[in-house]
Amino acid sequence: MTEYKLVVVGAGGVGKSALTIQLIQNHFVDEYDPTIEDSYRKQVVIDGETCLLDILDTAGQEEYSAMRDQYMRTGEGFLCVFAINNTKSFEDIHHYREQIKRVKDSEDVPMVLVGNKCDLPSRTVDTKQAQDLARSYGIPFIETSAKTRQGVDDAFYTLVREIRKHKEKMSKDGKKKKKKSKTKCVIM
Score class of each variant (00 low, 15 high):
residue 5 K to F: 00
residue 3 E to M: 07
residue 30 D to C: 10
residue 9 V to E: 03
residue 13 G to S: 10
residue 58 T to L: 07
residue 61 Q to S: 05
residue 61 Q to H: 08
residue 62 E to L: 08
residue 64 Y to G: 13
residue 45 V to C: 13
residue 60 G to M: 15
residue 19 L to C: 12
residue 37 E to C: 10
residue 56 L to E: 14
residue 14 V to G: 09
residue 47 D to V: 03
residue 12 G to S: 05
residue 62 E to Y: 05
residue 14 V to A: 12
residue 48 G to K: 09
residue 50 T to Y: 06
residue 31 E to G: 13
residue 17 S to P: 00
residue 39 S to L: 04
residue 35 T to K: 15
residue 62 E to H: 10
residue 4 Y to A: 12
residue 19 L to A: 13
residue 42 K to V: 05
residue 3 E to C: 09
residue 19 L to M: 10
residue 34 P to A: 13
residue 20 T to K: 01
residue 11 A to M: 14
residue 61 Q to V: 09
residue 44 V to R: 09
residue 28 F to R: 03
residue 25 Q to P: 02
residue 31 E to A: 12
residue 55 I to W: 15
residue 62 E to W: 06
residue 15 G to S: 00
residue 20 T to Y: 00
residue 20 T to V: 06
residue 18 A to C: 06
residue 15 G to A: 00
residue 55 I to E: 02
residue 63 E to L: 02
residue 33 D to R: 04
residue 7 V to L: 09
residue 4 Y to L: 14
residue 10 G to R: 00
residue 64 Y to T: 13
residue 36 I to H: 00
residue 18 A to Y: 00
residue 20 T to F: 02
residue 22 Q to G: 14
residue 38 D to Y: 04
residue 4 Y to T: 14
residue 18 A to P: 14
residue 34 P to E: 14
residue 46 I to V: 13
residue 40 Y to T: 02
residue 59 A to T: 15
residue 37 E to N: 04
residue 30 D to S: 10
residue 36 I to W: 02
residue 20 T to M: 08
residue 21 I to D: 10
residue 24 I to G: 05
residue 27 H to K: 13
residue 7 V to A: 07
residue 37 E to G: 03
residue 17 S to A: 01
residue 15 G to C: 00
residue 35 T to V: 15
residue 18 A to E: 01
residue 42 K to F: 04
residue 64 Y to S: 13
residue 55 I to T: 15
residue 29 V to R: 05
residue 60 G to F: 08
residue 52 L to F: 06
residue 5 K to N: 06
residue 9 V to A: 05
residue 52 L to W: 04
residue 62 E to V: 06
residue 52 L to R: 11
residue 53 L to K: 05
residue 3 E to L: 05
residue 61 Q to P: 14
residue 48 G to Q: 10
residue 28 F to K: 02
residue 22 Q to N: 14
residue 45 V to L: 10
residue 46 I to T: 11
residue 13 G to P: 03
residue 18 A to Q: 04
residue 10 G to L: 00
residue 16 K to S: 15
residue 39 S to G: 09
residue 21 I to Q: 14
residue 14 V to L: 14
residue 54 D to L: 02
residue 56 L to P: 02
residue 8 V to R: 00
residue 44 V to M: 09
residue 16 K to D: 12
residue 58 T to N: 08
residue 24 I to Q: 12
residue 6 L to Y: 03
residue 35 T to F: 15
residue 49 E to W: 04
residue 35 T to L: 15
residue 26 N to I: 03
residue 43 Q to Y: 09
residue 33 D to N: 04
residue 18 A to I: 05
residue 36 I to F: 06
residue 40 Y to F: 12
residue 40 Y to M: 13
residue 48 G to I: 03
residue 61 Q to K: 03
residue 6 L to Q: 01
residue 13 G to N: 08
residue 22 Q to Y: 03
residue 10 G to S: 13
residue 62 E to S: 10
residue 64 Y to L: 06
residue 21 I to Y: 15
residue 54 D to V: 03
residue 12 G to T: 05
residue 48 G to L: 03
residue 52 L to E: 08
residue 62 E to F: 05
residue 46 I to C: 09
residue 24 I to M: 11
residue 60 G to E: 15
residue 41 R to S: 02
residue 40 Y to Q: 03
residue 54 D to R: 03
residue 45 V to N: 11
residue 34 P to M: 15
residue 32 Y to Q: 04
residue 30 D to R: 08
residue 7 V to G: 04
residue 10 G to C: 06
residue 2 T to P: 08
residue 37 E to P: 00
residue 25 Q to G: 10
residue 5 K to M: 02
residue 41 R to W: 01
residue 27 H to L: 14
residue 22 Q to S: 14
residue 17 S to V: 00
residue 10 G to K: 02
residue 50 T to I: 08
residue 8 V to T: 01
residue 55 I to C: 14
residue 32 Y to D: 03
residue 27 H to I: 11
residue 53 L to R: 01
residue 45 V to S: 12
residue 63 E to Q: 05
residue 33 D to Q: 04
residue 46 I to N: 08
residue 35 T to S: 15
residue 56 L to M: 14
residue 9 V to C: 06
